[in-house]
Design a protein around this nucleic acid. Structure first.
Lengths: 133, 133
DNA sequence: GTCACGTGTCAGATTCTTCTTACACCCCAA
DNA sequence: TTGGGGTGTAAGAAGAATCTGACACGTGAC
């Protein structure tokens, strides 16, 4: 199901913000060449593990990669990551459509729940005379 | 010429970072509905003009909108903006391809030149033992 | 037990982005 | 000259993102 569909505003926003970072682009690129576990990936791309961990969280929250904790043959728990086959089209129309379903800042940054909370319909309507000299 | 092509790493990065912001998504959405000039657009989407100016700069630097200073019939100089017909495909392969041509942080943030500086071929190769306790 | 290698997470410093406020300039109308 | 509406930009505050270093835990090999 990697057909190109219309994402919600928050989803597209998460995807774009996640991919709009050079480190995360490199991470996705590295994982596109095959799955890998965190420590090894950190070594390969020259990044500290805590940092990589954070970036992977962001990518996973955006649905761009998926991680699974597996047991190696030697009994060590290793977290493998791989890219999910995402496919987004980026055009003015798509952006315009997505922008209509953008939620408020609090709802976005607050809790990364995937349950849709209803749009509050709050549009901006004040006529903002900010030039008050 | 809005055919879907392979962007350079820096270009794609600028596009994604530019679009990965709720305000800028709304700006693109508003401009997708027709061209507009800065002050009016600021009033319509409820944003201060200096702030909108900054966001528009970012969008223009990413090539997503184009602005042109025009003279109104009453002689006032007005800066009109409109969306450029961009079209990017966002898939792991595209990201992987783009990531190979990512330049260094200084070159990215430093000067937004569009002249292509040749890829320096610097891959990460050091084996980074960051665990030095 | 100790070491090597895997996992995760937290606190704090640093750096980047965002946003407001204030200023300067131009043109036309009253 | 004053006022309204357009433009642009710069300084500094506020906030968010990034990054490091240190900690805690688990397992297999020596």
């Amino acid at each position: 199901m990697n057909a190109i569909e219309t994402p919600t505003g928050d989803e597209l926003l998460r995807v774009l913000a996640a991919l709009g970072n050079p480190h995360r682009m490199r991470i996705v690129a590295a994982l596109a060449g095959g799955r890998n576990y965190v420590s090894r990936l950190a070594r390969e791309i020259g990044m500290s593990r805590p940092l990589l961990h954070m970036h992977l969280q962001r990518l996973e929250a955006a649905g761009l990669v998926v991680g699974s904790l597996e047991l190696s043959d030697s009994g060590k728990a290793m977290k493998f990551f791989e890219v999910s086959p995402f496919a987004y089209a980026l055009t003015p129309q798509v952006v315009a459509e997505a922008a209509r379903t953008l939620s408020e800042p609090e709802a976005r940054g607050g809790a990364p729940v995937q349950g849709r909370e209803q749009g509050q319909g709050r549009e901006q309507d004040q006529d903002e005379k900010e030039r008050a000299t």
